[in-house]
Each structure stands twice: as C-alpha cells, then as structure tokens.
C-alpha cells in the first residue's frame, strides 16, 4: 500500500476529470451547496469528509446528475452537465456510483445485476458481458456467488457486487457515497480492500466516508465540508497533523 501513498504521486500534470466551479444548489429555500469550487485530476483519489447534513451526498450526486444544481458549472471528463438527455446518459455511463444502501436489483441474480447495463446500455454481446462479469467478480473476490440473488448474500458481499456492477460499465470515474456505513464492522475491511485495489489501479475516485484510516492511507487529497461549503482542502498529512481552520479542528477532535 505504500506505493500509493500521497508523497510519491505527482498529479500536477494530470488532466482534469471533474471540474466544479461555483456550484450552488437549493432544496426549496434551503441552500445545500454554496459556491462549491474544486477540481479532481485523472487518477486522483479525493476523500470528502464532513458532519452529517453538510452536503457531501448532495455534491457527489450532482456530479452524475442524480441531483440538479441551479447555479455554477460542472464539467465531467470535458463534458459540461446540462439538461440535454444525451449528455446525461453519456456522463452516467462514464461515471460509476456506489451507494450506501448497495441498491442491487433484488429480482436479478448477481450475474444479471452486473451484465444488465453492459448488455442494454453498451449493447455488449451476452457472452462477452458474462466473461467480463466473471473477471470482475474474481477481482472483488466472490466468483462463486454469481448465481445467487442479492437477498442471499451478506452486506459486504453485496457491496462488492455493487462495485463490480459499476465497474462493468468501464467508468473513468468512480463515486462512492459512504460505501461502508451500512456494514457490520467485520465486513468493512473486505470492501475497503477492494477500493484500495481500485485506487492502486489508477481509477479516479471521489469517496465520501467516515473511515479515517482509509482517508489517511489512500487519499491524495481530503476535502472537508460543512454547511454546504468547502472549508478546507489539503493532503492527508496536512489535514490530520496541522489543519488551519478552526471548524476542521473541532470536527477532528470530535471524530478521532
């Protein structure tokens, strides 16, 4: 894991994968995002921290347009998000998303969960899609579960299937919204290990999590959010050893 530690990776010349510029979002009168401006580089792993209700989910959901922002610009892999349907579908198939509640399709087997989108969205032939799904299941460590239904698996296994399902679309970016928060402690590691492997393979990742160990070890940068604003951005070293903002210090003192 040391070879992925932040010091060795120089991403300053990498291309911009996600650009957010002055993004604002309101739910009715309530402002959930306030002038969020940030850039994520190719191959970068960004961890988003913040107290409950600070807008972390809202932000990463705006990036694949599960939520619509009202003001500002979001550019994903060179394509600006707009209400054009073609645009949205293109971006969504480039951006994989993993949810806190897994959201596997309960009426389909693990194999069908993974191959469904490649077959229908990417129009991949069935045999090819299934070969690929098996390879992905090997990668997340559960090839023997292919014919089970989600309801017959543990939470950790389900979340790994969800990761494989997102990867089957060959995304260039992966978004994780608290992928381990719904898991029993003994299953958290198996999911984090898969995510670490993914980071090592060079995937661009944005991860909302409360796993400080993961943030310390894997993140290239940490973004701290509160009340819809980006409060502090920095390397894990900076963030955990000498944060500048008082709000960050308060948050860290509560959580560590």
């Amino acid at each position: 894991m040391t070879d992925s530690s932040p010091e060795i990776r120089d991403l300053s010349h990498a291309k911009d994968m996600i650009v957010c510029d002055g993004v604002n979002k309101w739910y009715g009168d309530f402002q959930a995002l306030k002038d969020v401006t940030a850039t994520v580089k190719e191959r970068e792993v960004v961890v988003v921290l913040g107290p409950s209700g600070s807008g972390k989910s809202t932000w990463i959901r705006c990036i694949n347009r599960l939520e619509v922002h009202q003001k500002g610009v979001i550019i994903v892999d060179g394509v600006e998000l707009s209400s054009d349907v073609r645009n949205i579908e293109k971006i969504r198939s480039e951006v994989g998303m993993v949810f806190q509640q897994f959201n596997l399709f309960p009426h389909l087997t693990v194999m069908d969960n993974i191959t469904l989108a490649p077959k229908w969205v990417r129009k991949m032939p069935r045999v090819e899609a299934e070969d690929k799904a098996m390879a992905l299941l090997e990668r997340v460590g559960i090839p023997e579960q292919a014919d089970k239904f989600p309801g017959q698996m543990s939470g950790g296994q389900q979340q790994r299937v969800a990761i494989a399902r997102a990867l089957a679309m060959e995304p260039r970016i992966m978004l994780f919204d608290e992928p381990t928060s719904a898991l029993d402690p003994e299953m958290i590691k198996e999911v984090l290990d898969v995510m670490i492997g993914l980071a090592e393979s060079g995937m661009t990742m944005m991860v909302v999590t409360h796993e400080m160990g993961f943030a310390k070890e894997v993140a290239d940068r940490i973004i701290f959010m509160e009340d819809g604003e980006l409060v502090e951005v920095g390397t894990p070293e900076h963030f955990f050893t000498n944060p500048t903002e008082d709000r960050t210090k308060l948050f860290l003192s509560q959580i560590l």
Binding site: L66, K90, Q101, V121
Partner: peptide
Amino acid sequence: GQHEAAEALGMSTAQ
C-alpha cells in the same frame, strides 16, 4: 434507490 442505481448506470427511462 432502485431508480437511482439504474440511472447511475446510464439506463434510459424505458430501460
């Protein structure tokens, strides 16, 4: 969550 998962995979409304 089911709707969101399907949308996040790039499925059209019909799919």
